[in-house]
Write a protein that binds this DNA or RNA. Structure first.
Lengths: 193, 193
DNA sequence: CTTATTCCTGAATCATCATTCAATAAATCA
DNA sequence: TGATTTATTGAATGATGATTCAGGAATAAG
């Protein structure tokens, strides 16, 4: 058994609360006061548990990334055919982006705020996007090989194109575009595949 | 003639210098110290001329918006056919986004940082995007009416789709995607139109 | 040349923010 | 039970950031 007084807060819950704040305000725009209030802990607990604000963001990002990537990969490995699964993922993006109060993908927020940096969270974000894109490309290769998909462009190009579309949707969602507008872009994308 | 000591700095030049800083760091991430250093003026001059940091951002945004919209509209009203002009604009985006050191479109940065706000710069950003999108839609309507373009989707949908693609490119550019990757997305987009 | 007006300079100020720390509490171990 | 370990609390601290302002300077008008 571990000695000493046990944590009174759930780390994951605290990170999810912090995510909401970082998502809404960005890293620089979020104050520790807001974060701590949302996490419902005091500064001492936060610094003891995470180190500092920057590390907290890293942990929040890590958690978000795992969930997002995990869900995405799950959809890609769904019950349908390779092409169906790729399309399902695009539709899944649409559903997420057009859900009430959606602020866009947190990875894209991170890329806009820190994309110029070589290391840290920006690097993780780039890698995450690349993994998603690579997985989509594999599915598209399978779809083409099976004759299910006759692309006007190659699998790699289509995968990059779809990821780009998702990044655009993040901006739309953040800008407060309505469900109809977002779904229209998704439908257009699917119809052009 | 105006009385009193004349400005020693060029307002537009100062705004362009501030733009670089806001672009690189975001509104919250940019400090007045950095801004003033880049603008090459002292705090007093800045506050006298613009009011405060927020208003400075507004003015910077306004200037950027005018330039971006102006250039975009100019391309749309270019010498080619309606469809050619729309495609030229998309290629123009690609050229910009893949230019060395490009950080993506400043309007998209603004939308990610402030997109949840109803008024102010966020509202201006949404309007600017809508104007661009509407102008593209008009060109696509003309292209369809003349038989130049046989869209699988309607002009409105295609216009929204293309603007979305541009927003995605902003994230790519900010993330440091190479020229090849960006051009590939642009080429894919054009080939799917 | 004097005055009125506007601008410039940069140190000082005020506010805010991230972080620390001493006191206290809750748990395990001997 | 007492010692040890780890958490919690929240006021204090130190740093940084945005903004102000007093003193000096440049220009046009009278």
């Amino acid at each position: 058994m571990v000695r000493g007084r046990p944590r009174e807060f759930d780390e994951k819950q605290a990170l999810e609360a912090a995510l909401e704040v970082f998502w809404r305000k960005g890293y620089e725009g979020a104050t520790c006061e807001e974060l701590l209030s949302a996490m419902d802990i005091n500064s001492g607990s936060m610094y003891a548990a995470f180190g500092d604000k920057k590390v907290l963001y890293d942990r929040v990002f890590e958690l978000y990334c795992q969930n997002a990537l995990g869900q995405g990969m799950k959809v890609l490995d769904g019950p349908g055919s390779p092409l169906e699964n790729v399309k399902a993922l695009v539709r899944c993006w649409g559903g997420f982006m057009s859900s009430p109060g959606c602020k866009g993908c947190f990875i894209d927020h991170t890329l806009i705020e820190f994309g110029n940096e070589k290391k840290g969270v920006a690097q993780l974000a780039r890698r995450a996007m690349k993994r998603m894109q690579d997985a989509m490309e594999q599915k598209l290769i399978a779809a083409r090989d099976s004759g299910e998909w006759v692309g006007e462009v190659g699998p790699a190009e289509m995968a990059a194109f779809l990821v780009n579309t998702k990044q655009g949707l993040s901006v739309m969602a953040r800008a407060g575009a309505g469900k109809k507008a977002i779904q229209a872009v998704v439908d257009t994308t699917l119809s052009l595949m």
